[in-house]
Design a protein around this nucleic acid. Structure first.
Length: 817
RNA sequence: GGGCGUUUAGCUCAGUUGGCUAGAGCACCUGCCUUACAAGCAGGGGGUCAGAGGUUCGAGUCCUCUAACGCCCACCA
């Protein structure tokens, strides 16, 4: 039997342990049941988990539990994304070191031990939330298996001609000192100055250009004006002399020069922005590099060499001003692309990098979106929009330390690429020499590729990692494509997109059938919760400790799929209330079900009991429908609505009958017992995915010995029995509720206790035509034996009118003093 | 500048393919210790459904325009 009070703090860990000991959530590779597989996001191991993680992970977890109860063989893994720049930066900060100052192997060891600690914390928290993961399926992206699959992925793309190793201008972060990809850019508003500079023209005259980056003057290779710009027609083809630096550059025409902007004349440099790169390629301009990978000026900058970019900007400006070159300078705020990890302005450097080709296959990648079901549907638009606007192939090489190495060596003599056999993977070319000589020229002058992969290059193969692609594992046929990818909307352009690219290029297929996109948790207006922000008070551990896992879980299920929600502590109180209510209601019901040997639905004969079966059935079918569409919040509110009606109305109606069955006729007691059984068992199953602990507690205390499932979470999810639907019975129930409501209102208005016995109630028969179908229950719920039906208003005598229902309420036995 | 989303009670949000008098929870007000629960229960007040126009017998719901807010992208001389 259930104890007097429910203590979540004691119960929740107990059931978590029970689930784990009984392997309740294990994926069964040999099962014949339909597989439901989830491509769980491996969180970046770069800080503590925050409430936003809890929010989106729990939403997916609810789906996992639901699908399991639908009889599916659920594949629900967890993983850790523990390599790459974010992790490096975390390790550097935590240990107060710089990766580049340590030996590579030393730094990598430090990374491994640091992430191992953090991963243990993550895992503890997922367990504390009652996540039904199969921890045997756990992976970490830096482990050997994942490195092997990641390198296999690379080699496969190389073989298919979908990877390029080429030198070209690319986005570069001078702080992180690595190439980056388009998806890693952030746009921020930055203060700057817009400067008008005077260039002398060799043939005579001058031309004035506007620029925000005067420090790039040494890199100036050309001046562009619009071909139709009348102001500059006379100067086209002439030669301008770059101030300070004195080199000569041509004045050329290009449509992309904007007549409206600045003076209409613009200098083209190596490289100020994306347009400079386009012009560089289109007009075959020379290369004048004035910025080093470290963000300092090169020798080309003459007297400014060695200065940092921003210092140089200042110095150049003041020199220009001295020389009378700077004609005008105004402060502006403009958008600048920065690297999302360092916040540093992106530079464009010509370097040699590995690229996965995207540009030539954009159409196919856009079309791929239609083969996947997006929940909510409008999120597909984000993907399409991103892919359509892609401007670069995917640069996957990073000049960093802790990550998956490229399984490549290069022949220094003939530049031949030398690759390992699949059986040798994973390899680290910087640690292992190439086994042999150059296959092209026979040279033994071989060097390793020193790049590591973009962290997304590995995390984009999580489906392949999950089904152990290329490892001769039977999972592959069961799991490809996977059933569902849960993730938040901010990484559609990275994780979702890259995963789709990989599956399309490798398997010529979609990675998963469904994608479920969750929103963010916001503190207040527009403030995203992030790891860096203070979250000591709202940290998940603290919240679980304060409110219990079930309560936190309930809150995460409250917001509609895909929509952001505010962190509102008040919401937790509502959840706590529900948990308490479920416990108390169940306690009441089970108290009266001790004598019930075996549930028998045919014994449910009384009208209002059948009405509840009907409502239960409809609720279950709607909840089931919603959940199958990932609309967990709508499902939850259906179930809650049913449950609260059950507590407030039905339980009050049947109270007398359950205590005094003999006064209600043959079978009336058995009817209500079986009804209660069906309702409580139905409700705890419907709520099990949302609040798994309290529901398990109730199941184990009573239902287990009758239903025989090891855990409630292995029972079937109710889907609504059509045979239980009974519209006529529901009408009886509705009338009964209305009748009782009028009586309650009367008592409340008369300031009477609700259990006050009334002497007589008269009602108009035409208003409550079905009264007799539930007469005993209604009378006792109304606390009045003497309830009389009248055929006409005249018969009712002195009437009291409430809400159009005509009643005569007799005087209470105990008059107020 | 382009795209997507949102706008319903003081707050947070439901409202299916158009269909009784627009709902819930929280908050507020008034009562009630009632044999599951006072961490509870009953009752009540509170809304020009962002605005304008249109389609329709009928619009919170469909169409057009407008506005505000949020997000994504572009803009970066």
């Amino acid at each position: 039997m259930l104890p007097k009070k429910y203590k979540a703090k004691e119960s929740e860990p107990r059931w978590q342990k029970y689930w784990s000991e009984n392997n309740v959530f294990a994926f069964d590779p040999n099962s014949k049941s339909e597989v439901y597989s989830i491509d769980t996001p491996p969180p970046t191991v770069s800080g503590v988990l925050h409430i936003g993680h809890v929010y989106s992970y729990t939403q997916a977890e609810i789906v996992a539990r639901y699908q399991r109860m639908k009889g599916k063989n659920v594949f629900y893994p967890f993983g850790f994304d523990d390599n790459g720049l974010p992790t490096e930066r975390f390790v550097e900060k935590k240990n107060k070191v710089r990766g580049k100052d340590l030996k590579r192997s030393e730094f990598n060891d430090l990374c491994r031990t640091t992430v191992a600690e953090l991963e243990e914390q993550f895992r503890t928290m997922w367990s504390a939330l009652g996540f039904s993961a199969d921890w045997n399926l756990c992976y970490s992206t830096i482990e050997e298996n994942c490195q092997r699959i990641s390198q296999r992925s690379f080699l496969d793309l190389l073989k298919k001609g979908l990877v390029d190793y080429r030198e070209e201008p690319n986005m570069w972060c001078v702080t992180s000192q690595t190439a980056v990809a388009q998806a890693e850019l952030d746009s921020v508003e930055q203060e700057s100055t817009f400067n008008d500079l005077k260039f002398d023209i060799k043939e005579g005259g001058e031309i004035i250009i506007g620029t925000t980056r005067p420090e790039l003057l040494p890199s100036c290779v050309c001046i562009f004006v619009h071909p139709d710009d009348p102001r500059y027609k006379d100067r086209l083809g002439k030669t301008a002399i770059v101030p300070i630096f004195g080199h000569e550059v041509p004045i050329l025409a290009d449509e992309k020069a904007d007549m409206e902007k600045g003076t209409g004349a613009v200098m083209c440099c190596t490289f100020g922005d994306k347009t400079d790169i386009e012009w560089f390629k289109k007009h075959k301009l020379p290369l004048r590099v004035s910025i080093t990978p470290y963000g300092k000026m090169t020798d080309l900058a003459g007297q400014f060499a060695g200065l940092k970019i921003k210092e140089a900007r200042k110095a150049v400006l003041s020199k220009l001003n001295e020389d009378g070159i700077l004609l005008n300078s105004k402060s502006i705020v403009h958008a600048v692309n920065v690297h999302e990890r360092s916040g540093t302005e992106i530079e464009y450097l010509s370097t040699r990098q590995w690229f996965i080709k995207l540009m030539e296959r954009k159409d196919e990648l856009v079309a791929l979106a239609d083969k996947i079901e997006w929940y909510p549907a409008f999120m597909k638009q984000r993907y399409v929009h991103w892919v359509e606007n892609l401007g670069w192939d995917w640069c996957i090489s990073r000049q960093r330390f802790f990550g998956v190495p490229f399984p490549v060596w290069h022949c220094k003599d003939c530049c031949q690429m030398l690759l390992p056999e699949d059986s040798q993977l994973p390899v680290d070319p910087q640690e292992q020499a190439y086994p042999g000589e150059c296959t092209n020229c026979g040279s033994s002058n071989i060097e390793p590729d020193r790049n590591i992969m973009d962290t997304w290059a590995t995390s984009s193969v999580t489906p392949q990692i999950n089904y152990r692609w290329g490892e001769n594992d039977s999972r592959e046929e069961h799991l490809a494509p996977m059933s569902m990818r849960p993730q938040a909307h901010d990484i559609i352009r990275t994780w979702a997109f890259y995963t789709m690219v990989k599956a399309y290029y490798h398997q010529n297929d979609i990675p998963w059938k469904d994608i479920m996109i969750s929103g963010h948790v916001l503190y207040k207006k527009g403030q995203k919760i992030s790891k860096s922000k203070g979250n000591s008070k709202s940290g998940p551990e603290q919240l679980i400790d304060q409110y219990s896992a079930d309560v936190i879980r309930y809150w995460t299920a409250g917001a509609k799929l895909g929509s952001d929600c505010y962190f509102e502590e008040n919401e937790f109180k509502i959840a706590a209330k529900l948990v308490t209510k479920i416990f108390n209601a169940s306690k009441f019901a089970l108290m009266h079900l001790e004598s019930l040997e075996k549930f028998d639905e045919t014994k449910i004969t009384v009208a209002i009991d059948r009405a509840m079966m009907s409502r239960l059935s409809k609720t279950a079918s709607r909840a089931d429908q919603f959940l199958s569409q990932y609309e967990y919040s709508l499902a939850l509110s259906e179930i809650e609505g049913f449950f609260w009606d059950f507590c407030d109305n039905y339980m009050e109606l049947i109270k007398h009958r359950i205590y005094n069955p003999q006064e209600h006729g043959e079978g009336a007691g058995e009817s209500v017992q079986n009804s209660l059984y069906a309702i409580v068992y139905g409700v705890i199953r419907m709520l099990a995915p949302f609040i798994p602990h309290i529901t398990e507690e109730i199941y184990q205390a009573y239902f287990k010995q009758r239903e025989k499932h090891v855990s409630l979470h292995l029972a079937d999810y109710p889907n609504g029995k059509k045979s239980w639907v009974d519209e006529q019975a529901e009408k009886v129930y509705e009338e009964a509720c209305q009748f009782v409501a009028v009586v309650r209102k009367f008592k409340t208005e008369q300031r009477l206790s609700l259990n006050t016995e009334l002497t007589e109630i008269q009602y108009l028969r035409t208003q409550f035509g079905l009264f007799r179908e539930a007469q005993n229950d209604i009378q006792r719920a109304a606390r009045c034996d003497n309830v009389k039906a009248m055929d006409s208003l005249d018969d009712v005598g002195s009437l009291v009118e409430f809400e159009g229902k005509l009643l005569r309420i007799g005087n209470p036995i105990e008059e107020e003093a």
